[in-house]
Design a protein around this nucleic acid. Sequence first.
RNA 1: GCCCCCAUAGCCCAACUGGCAGAGGCAGCCGACUUAAAAUCGGCCCAGUGCGGGUUCGAAUCCCGCUGGGGGCACCA
Length: 665
Amino acid sequence: MCIRDRDQTVLANEQVVGGLCERCDTPVTKKKLTQWYFGITQYADRLLDDLNQLEGTWPAKVLTMQRNWIGRSVGADVQFVIEGRDEPVSVYTTRPDTLYGATFMVVAPDSDLAAELAATAPEQTQQEFATYLDRVKAITEIERQSTDHEKTGVFLNHWAINPVNGERLPIWAADYVLSDYGHGAIMAVPAHDQRDLDFALKFDLPVRVVVETGLPDPADSHIAATGEGRLINSGPLNGHTKTEAIDLIIRILEEKGLGRAAKNFRLRDWLISRQRYWGTPIPIIHCPQCGEVPVPDDQLPVELPPMSGDELRPRGISPLADAEDWVNVPCPQCGAAAKRDTDTMDTFVDSSWYYLRFVSPHDDTAIFDIAEAEKWAPIDQYVGGVTHAILHLLYSRFVTKVLFDMGLVTFTEPFSALLNQGMVLMDGSAMSKSRGNLVRLSDELEEFGVDAVRLTMAFAGPPEDDIDWKDVSPGGSARFLARAWRLARDVTSAPEVVWADGDHALRRATHRLLADVPQLIEAFKFNVVIARVMDLVNQVRRVIDSGAGPADPAVREATENIAIILSLFAPYTAEDMWRLLGYQPSVARAGLRKPDHALLVEESVTCVVQVNGKVRDRLEVSPQTSEAELTKLALESEQVQHILAGAEPVKVIVRAPKLVNIVAR
RNA sequence: GCCCCCAUAGCCCAACUGGCAGAGGCAGCCGACUUAAAAUCGGCCCAGUGCGGGUUCGAAUCCCGCUGGGGGCACCA
């Protein structure tokens, strides 16, 4: 829970970053509350496995972050009998092979089991436990998670029985075991787990090696032996490798009904209740007779009651509780006086499916129009900040899978491709609303114009990279745009000219650009597109000033295409160029022209001649020159003869028509 | 502590499946135009691809090991 004035609400696991509230950086506190959750953990396997479908189209970084966050681990549940308790206790372990090395058990201090065991312990133990529990609750999440948090704990005066060898294991409560992961209880194998070893050393508990790893005894080295090895001191497991022993012990435990293979996830269920006004009311009515009753479909959606001003201020309880007319409703089942749930849903619930609502925003009969969704979704290309890597993007994937299971969509992943755009930095620091803008965008726009500022951002580098504003030059962009604009001003030919009469070299350059632009755009290489346009602008300038002159048709052709391509980045400049060239608005509607393939055929190419990988000569040849011909020409080269100095070529590698490599000696 | 990504000119960045290291820009220098300056135009300078090995006819590109930077996870049994 975030307690600061601004938020005062409970949060989901994903919204707690390093023990701090994701929105306002306030340390979070824990509180026992009854809240609504979405069962995202039931989709954990699919959320993890389906990431493979996104390989290559999503940034590898985001895939890794989601995999880490879901955190699947495989191992076994093992049942331990507790002396004096009827029900055995399950523990989860990824190393069931080390079961013979267990020397104690640890339970989470805030678990029901710990409370139960403490309650049946001697008076002094009860006191120690109560004190310890208070202490654990008092420390913040940050302190608890700090890297070298000293191990703490209390002995509960109870014993568990190791199911495979009947040994009595003392049961401790310690906060390095979490109540909400696995079963909130572990078997401790100090020889082969660093955390257990640290605890055992601190409280003088036995350390027993059961895997021969060739490493020094952990009891002496204080380093747990987590590597591979053969099992020892482990009855039927002796002599087996770690992997074999894991399979074997699981089989033995299953046969005896003492355990089974199991897996666990780091992912927790999604807590969606929020004590805020702005959000979607949770459509549940609490009836004293019927309990929690869903609002009937024909009364959905539940709309917020009108409230304003101070009524909306967060106070740790939902503002909606004050809207009495709204809260008090008859139970849909029995008609008795009942109350609406006064919490609203996490707004991430809404953003998880907005992309589907957007295809039919005016449909008031359904969540969205299934046919429209079928037509438009999933999203081909999604662009967003990496900040949503495990919030929005995980929730949205989850909701999409739920909608798929409900038969509302036919796909299981909402975003086929993802691009994480970079940020604009100043001297290495992010500019943001909270930190304040280190460069005033308004000043930059005032000085250089919006076209130049946008062009600067597109030209600075690949879109996924951060840009440091100190490295870029909006002034340079403005100069370039003026330079391009002057071409349009200088063109003297009419739109009706015959392009085929134009300067051949310039025409070829123009059509090469036209051929390359579509794929560059699709690959998001906007910086390269702009560089190529700059190159063409330079060439046109040269033709105007010292070549065929401003009346040449190729000059017009090149300039028109420059305007069309530039309209992607600098629409105002491009429109004005278009007008100067004698057209009506809008260049944006002109469409990218198709290259004339006849102009793309190379008339001659430079063939590089290497000797032992070093360039020694260049040949101007026709693109159709055969390998044999190239070999002959290369060997005849004076340069090559000189370098070879009579040595016999061992091998000639030809990549016609661009390269010949002669291997000598 | 574990995992991932990146490293090319003074700076930002290019280089298709290994095949001529430079497309473009910034900064700098020189020149033209100008009474002068700005703007403009032309030209020039600049790295052998972080370091060390390996594979290959050939490596910025592939492999291994380092260094530096960035990011993710971090008592999850």
